[in-house]
Each structure stands twice: as structure tokens, then as C-alpha cells.
Write a protein that binds this DNA or RNA. Sequence first.
DNA 1: AGTATTTGACCGGA
DNA 2: TCCGGTCAAATACT
Length: 247
Amino acid sequence: MEDTTATLATELDGLLAMARELEERVDGDQGAPGAARELCAELAASVDRAVRLAGSGPRGGNAGGRARVNGQHRGGRKAGAVRAQVRVASMQDLGSLDDGLSWRKYGQKDILGAPYPRAYFRCTHRHSQGCQATKQVQRAAADPLLFDVVYHGAHTCAQATAVLVGTDQQPPASLGQEQQQQQSSPAEASEGMQWPAEPFTPPSFPSSPAGCYTPGNSWCQLAGNYGYAAGGGLGADMDFDELFWNM
DNA sequence: AGTATTTGACCGGA
DNA sequence: TCCGGTCAAATACT
């Protein structure tokens, strides 16, 4: 086990280094998309190896241009929730917030002290399969491109099971594609929602296809998408604060 | 026609 | 009483 842990640490370390470099390049030099893609591919491979080394993999994995995992307890969320921060690379990249699972928006609330409303989602299969998973998405006040995503409950639907299995076998791309049939594309979905230029609401999270999707300045989809990939979609910058799975 | 989203109302907890 | 979370009817979209 120690061997695996050490290797995993090395991989993740390299991942972080590459991610940072990638971020700098993309942010600072838009004239180097090629290099960015190259790094992105390496990043994907590295993360994929790390994921496999991690065995079953943590639920609440991530896939995005930059992955950052910390164990900070940042206030107030009750156990049983998985909290993640997802950064999109651009306003056109909102589809990146997809996590490979199908969610249905059931509410939206203005939160006291928050400049942006919070959106509430539940599993599409809640009624048909009794899946109790829900998630809340709220845009960070400080960073308009940063979304706080909080997952509640465990996915018990067939789709989630398939995604979990896919951790070892294949990315949940197939799932996303299935959903594509009844849901519009990520970009379209994002546009379709009420997203005013300034204070817009969190996006709905339609399933999106995996793959290296770089319409503008978005990041690459990583190869390994964890079962409960919180915002594991394209171009997402994940920042997991807490991982509680004692449900 | 079926499904998803929007939005105001309702309910429970602090 | 206030606030966060959910419900459900109306509406929009495919």
C-alpha cells in the first residue's frame, strides 16, 4: 500500500505542477493553445493513473484543468455532504459544471448575503428509481467564475452506478451521451437559462459529453472521471473542502 | 406529447 | 420571525 501511496503522491504532485503551468499558459498567453493542449493531455493521463492507483477512487473525484484537494473544514456544512468548488474558464464554459450525472433543477433561492442565488438540483431519477441525491450550486461572491457545489445524499440510480463502475472502465461519457438525447447540449443549456450578463444564476447541469472540449479557452476533460465527479466536467477547477461519505 | 425549467408559495428549523 | 430548502403549477422547449 505504501508503494501505491507514494506513486500516487508523485503523480498528483506532477499533476499539480502541470496544472499550474497550464493555468499560467492559458491565462497569460492565449497564443499557445497547442502547448496548453499538450499539457492538458499529460494532465489527463497523469490524473487517470492517479485515479487507477487510488483503486475504487474517491467519490467526489474531479476532472478539470486544475485539481486541488485539501482537507480544510470550511464552516458549517453538515456531514454527508460533499462540497466542491468548480471554476469555469469562461462564461461559455458553464457546461463544464456537468458531472456526468443527470440533474433536474427544482428550485432557486436568493441567499442572504450572497450576490447570486443558489440553485437546487435533484437526481432526474428521483421518482423513478428513488435516488435521493441532491446538489446545490451557488456562484462565489468573490469570483464570478467560481461555483460552490454541494452534494447531498447518495446516488442510487442506475446511471450513478454506471458512472461509478465507469471509474475503472471508462469515463461516463456514454452516460452523458445518453442524456444528450433528451437534454440540450451544455452550452445550449447554459444559454437557455436565465443568465444575465452580470448577476446570473447557477447553471443547470445537463450531462455533457466527455472529451477534450475547447471551444474557446476551456480546459480539457480528464480521462478519469470519478463516480461522483463533482463538477467533473470540462474546464472545471475543483476544490474539495470536505469529503464525507458516511451515508 | 413528454420532459425540463421557472418561480412563487409553503414548511421546518434556528 | 427570518431564512433555507422543497413543492408544485405554469410555462417553455424539443
